[in-house]
Amino acid sequence: MRALLIILRLGIKEIYSLARDPVLMGLIVYTFSVSVYTVADGVETELRDAAIAIVDEDDSVLSHRLRGAFLPPYFKPPVIIGIADIDEVLDSSRFTFVLDIPTKFELGVQRGRLPAIQLNVDATAMSIAGNGAGYITSIVEQEVARFMSRAEPGAAAAANLQIRVKYNPNLEAVWLNAVMEVVNNIIVMAIILSGAAVIREREHGTIEHLLVMPVTAAEIMISKIWANGLVIVIAALLSLQFVVNWGLGVPLRGSITLFAFGAAVFLFSNTALGVMLSTFARSMPQFALLAIPVIVVLQLLSGSLTPLESMPETLQWIMQLSPATHFVRFSQAVIYRDAPIILIWPELAIMFGIGCLFFAMALSRFRIAMGTR
C-alpha cells in the first residue's frame, strides 16, 4: 500500500508538472485536434476530380460512348486533344491520364479482333495514377461490353460479379485516415511525453530531489508511465468523439471502452520505450534526435499507413516485436469491425508481454543512468 500511495502521489505531481508546461499542453491539444482533422480531411488516396484527355482517332459511336463515360466526381470533364499533343500535355502536368482511341477501333471490336487502346499515365502522382488506371480500365471494359450487348442482343455475360463492401461502404479514405491518425498520434505522444518527463526533471534539477527521497526507480518510472498514459488516453478518446465522430462524421462501431483498455496496455510498453530513450539523452534536443528515427520506423512499418502484408516477409517478422504493429491491428478490429475481446485478446497479450520486456529494459537503464536502486 505504501508503494501504491507513492506511485499515486508521484503520478499526480507529474500531471501537475505537465499541466504547467504550455508547450507540451499545446502540442497535445494540437496533435489530437487540428492535426487529426487536417490530415484525415486533406489527404485523399481515392480518385477524385482527375484530369483526363482523350485522343479520338476513331470518331465512332463507341468512341463517343467512351468520351461520355468519364464523369464526376471521379473525373473532370474530358478534354479532346490531338495525337501530337500527348507528350506536351503530360510533360506540362496538365493531365494525369491521356486515353488514345485508335482508328477503326469500333470496327475491330465488332469483328472480334481485340484492338488495342492506349492509356498514358503520369505516374508522378503515384496513388492517383494507380487507382485511376484501374478505374479507366474498368470503365472502358464496361462500355465495350455494353456496346457489344446492344449490337448482339443474344449475347450474355459469362458471370455477374456482385461486390459487397463491408465496414466502409463508400470507400471513404477519411474513415481510415481519421482513426489511423489518432493511433499514430498515440504512438508519437507516448514516446515524447514519457521521455520529456524524465528530461524535464533533469533540466529543472528535481530529479536529484526524487533520488534522495525514500522512493525506488521502479516507483518513479511507474508513476510517469501511468500519468502520461492517462493524459494520452483521455486526449485520444476526446479526439475520437469530437474530431473523428462529430467533426469528420466517421462512425465508431466498436466499443470505446475496449479501445481505451487496449490503448492503456499499448501505452504501458510505448511509454517505457520513451523513458528508456530519455536515459540516453541529457537534453530535449538530444532526446528528439533519438526519438524521431524510432517514431518514424514505428509509424511507417506498423501497418497504419501501408498494409503489413505488402512488406517483405523478414520485415513482417521483425515488426511482430513492435507493440505498435499489434496496436494498429487491435484498433482496426475494435473501431471498424466491432470485434469482441474474445477475438482480439491475443493482440492484448502480445502488447502486454512486449511491454513487460520494455519496462524491464527501461528500468535497468534508468537505474544505471540515475545511479539509484
Rank of each mutant, 00 (worst) to 15 (best):
F287R: 03
T325P: 00
M189S: 06
E208F: 03
Q110A: 14
L107F: 11
I12D: 07
F280P: 00
Q110D: 13
F359M: 07
W226L: 14
Q316S: 06
V182A: 06
A178F: 06
M221H: 05
I163Q: 09
E219Y: 09
V231E: 01
S322M: 10
Q316F: 02
R253S: 12
P72G: 02
V250G: 05
I83M: 11
Q286L: 11
T38G: 00
N184C: 09
L321P: 05
M351R: 02
A156I: 12
S33Y: 04
F261L: 15
V328A: 04
I52Q: 01
I136Y: 10
A288I: 14
A349G: 04
D87N: 14
E203P: 06
G130K: 05
A263G: 06
D21Q: 11
P72M: 06
T372E: 05
L18F: 15
L62W: 02
T45K: 04
L4T: 10
F366K: 02
S269H: 02
I192S: 04
I368P: 01
I220D: 04
N245F: 07
P340G: 05
T216Y: 04
L24V: 07
C356R: 01
F268E: 00
R150L: 14
L99T: 09
R282T: 14
I222R: 08
T31G: 06
I207S: 13
L238Y: 11
M284S: 12
V43I: 15
D122P: 03
Q299H: 13
Y16I: 15
M213S: 15
R329P: 00
E172C: 10
E219K: 10
N177Y: 03
A125T: 05
K166D: 10
P78H: 05
M1V: 14
G355M: 01
D91S: 15
L298R: 08
V188W: 03
P293Y: 07
R337A: 10
I136F: 09
I15A: 14
R164E: 13
N245G: 05
K224I: 05
L357P: 00
G229I: 01
E219S: 13
E88P: 00
N168P: 06
L290F: 14
I344D: 00
L66G: 03
V179R: 07
A360H: 01
A155P: 00
V121G: 03
L277N: 03
I232N: 03
N228H: 07
E141F: 10
I256C: 02
I232K: 05
R200M: 07
G355I: 04
F287A: 04
A339W: 02
P22Q: 11
D91R: 15
A157S: 14
S304T: 12
Q332Y: 04
E106W: 08
S33G: 06
L321F: 13
F261E: 02
V29F: 12
I318D: 06
F268S: 01
T216S: 15
I191N: 00
L27C: 07
R253I: 13
L10R: 14
R164G: 11
S255H: 08
